[in-house]
Amino acid sequence: MRNLKRAASMSACTSAVALALAAYALPARAESDNPFVTLAGTWGGSGTARFDDGKTESLRCKGYYTNNGNPHNLGLSIRCANASAKLELRANLVDTNGAVSGNWEERTYNQSGTVTGRATAGRMTLSITGGITGTMTVAISGGSHVVTVASSGPSFKGVHISMSR
């Protein structure tokens, strides 16, 4: 009986070690696959805002991305302006193995809502819902990135911004 208990105990211990090793060996999403790490920091650039009447306006933009040391969280603040227009987009995003979720707000047009989407090393593709609906893509290449927002808003239809460090 004693040998059976010892064998059962050894088997349970071996199973626990095997399970721990298997979990460790599973491929995890590499930090280099996470665009949040690449985006962290301050960016500057220019863009174009598009309105429902077909009018476009050039903008100067600043982007501030923070992750506070957590590569799976991203706070973003993009501010664009010219003499007659202003856009201030903010979001708090969470990356869970490539699935992105969070919330957003645009302060000039007083709109807010939720964000869902996907993230890879060089791209985020997001859906925005709430006061307005639309999409947001962020395409990252080296020391630059492009942000494109398309909206169903009543007057604001979208923005295309190119930024670099």
Score class of each variant (00 low, 15 high):
residue 163 M to E: 02
residue 70 N to R: 11
residue 136 M to P: 04
residue 75 G to M: 08
residue 65 Y to C: 08
residue 102 G to F: 03
residue 111 Q to K: 06
residue 9 S to Y: 08
residue 84 S to E: 03
residue 119 A to T: 02
residue 134 G to K: 05
residue 162 S to A: 15
residue 66 T to V: 05
residue 23 A to E: 09
residue 83 A to F: 11
residue 99 A to E: 02
residue 91 A to G: 13
residue 36 F to K: 11
residue 21 L to T: 05
residue 117 G to K: 03
residue 153 G to Y: 03
residue 31 E to Y: 03
residue 64 Y to W: 07
residue 143 G to Q: 13
residue 65 Y to D: 00
residue 22 A to L: 12
residue 128 I to P: 04
residue 110 N to S: 13
residue 78 I to N: 01
residue 35 P to M: 12
residue 119 A to Y: 00
residue 45 G to E: 03
residue 125 T to P: 06
residue 112 S to C: 14
residue 64 Y to M: 12
residue 46 S to K: 03
residue 91 A to K: 08
residue 46 S to M: 06
residue 99 A to K: 15
residue 61 C to R: 00
residue 140 I to K: 15
residue 134 G to T: 05
residue 55 K to I: 10
residue 160 H to L: 11
residue 142 G to W: 08
residue 154 P to D: 14
residue 120 T to R: 12
residue 8 A to E: 08
residue 51 F to G: 07
residue 51 F to H: 10
residue 47 G to P: 10
residue 123 R to M: 11
residue 80 C to I: 02
residue 20 A to M: 03
residue 46 S to C: 07
residue 101 S to F: 00
residue 103 N to E: 10
residue 23 A to R: 08
residue 68 N to V: 08
residue 2 R to L: 14
residue 88 E to W: 07
residue 103 N to M: 11
residue 103 N to R: 04
residue 5 K to C: 15
residue 149 V to G: 12
